[in-house]
Write a protein that binds this DNA or RNA. Sequence first.
DNA 1: CCACAGTGGAACATTGATGTTCCAAAATAG
DNA 2: CTATTTTGGAACATCAATGTTCCACTGTGG
Lengths: 188, 188
Amino acid sequence: MTDTVSGSRARTRQAILDAATAVFARNPGATLGDVAVAAGVGRTTLHRYYADRAELVTALHIEAGRRLETARLRARIGEDTGAEAVRRLGQEYFDLGDILSLLFNDQITLDGGAAEKDDACDPEFEAMVRRGYEDGSIDRSLPADWVQSLLWAQLYAGWSYLAERQVSRHEALRLVLHSLMNVLRPRG
Amino acid sequence: MTDTVSGSRARTRQAILDAATAVFARNPGATLGDVAVAAGVGRTTLHRYYADRAELVTALHIEAGRRLETARLRARIGEDTGAEAVRRLGQEYFDLGDILSLLFNDQITLDGGAAEKDDACDPEFEAMVRRGYEDGSIDRSLPADWVQSLLWAQLYAGWSYLAERQVSRHEALRLVLHSLMNVLRPRG
DNA sequence: CCACAGTGGAACATTGATGTTCCAAAATAG
DNA sequence: CTATTTTGGAACATCAATGTTCCACTGTGG
């Protein structure tokens, strides 16, 4: 119960976290009981791992931050043309799935060293956009933080489109990336 | 108390409705007490006008539907090129302000005869997009319902951008419409 | 087989939102 | 000014979510 990871405990803990992600993504006001059911676990057990609702939410934030961070790293936003980098970032973020919905439904501000959705545009992202200005792949009339807003908005659009229409995940991603490239493209 | 609109009553009723719009737009889980305070009215009075929370929410839906409908009419989406019509629609919707946030935060499905955000694309909207295909102002690889998703997503982006950055409402609108036109424009 | 970590269910106290009732004060109409 | 409408506050009952405690059950490792 202290800090030894007994295998079973780690598995349960993760199951709860995953369930919480899925449940809260669909309904931010969901009950801890809902989460417990989704995790296939008793409410008592849930409280054993996360005493508070707040504690669970915090864990969720941390997890989301980690996932977002690794996705961002995978995208290697420092390479290629600006637009290409944005495209890769969009793709990686899209794959986060439920995590994205969390970031929207709750207005999670990722506090840690991770990427931020709300806060002022971070340097790396801004550098990527600026690079796009230079190499002619990104419309100069779009400020970097607006590009970031567009990225999030279109990811959101993609997922709600996926949820509401009968469309393959692949087709939704295609539309998102296509539209993302289109919106960045300088007027020709 | 029956059905006579005594002037005072109508005014109070509207104040509550407006307050509810503003409050729920920022926090869907807000208390009825919060709404009452925002309306400058006692909680008792609020219950006098809307017995239930559900009743208040219903009234909110109806109001939102009406506002959305008139905005849509003002946009005259049957005229001009497809892209121009989308632009006007975007402008009109943008002016709805808090109503928009409501449509996102809650997942209000506008049931009545009004425009729908979630449901399958409505005929008028689809006709507008199709017209855009024909007149060359809208990219043929964008399905009509995806265009609708994009419209909503970018409006959302505009408002969150407005809320989080220090940007004028006018500038936010400019970015939204610019990006909207950009994303629709066929590859040339 | 036994010890024990891990679990689930029942019961309970607590809390905050909700909805209701009642009454006195304030605003408005006549 | 007087009668009526409209309002706000206090008090109350209800309800659902929360968090806690306790105990019995299960499975696994020894």
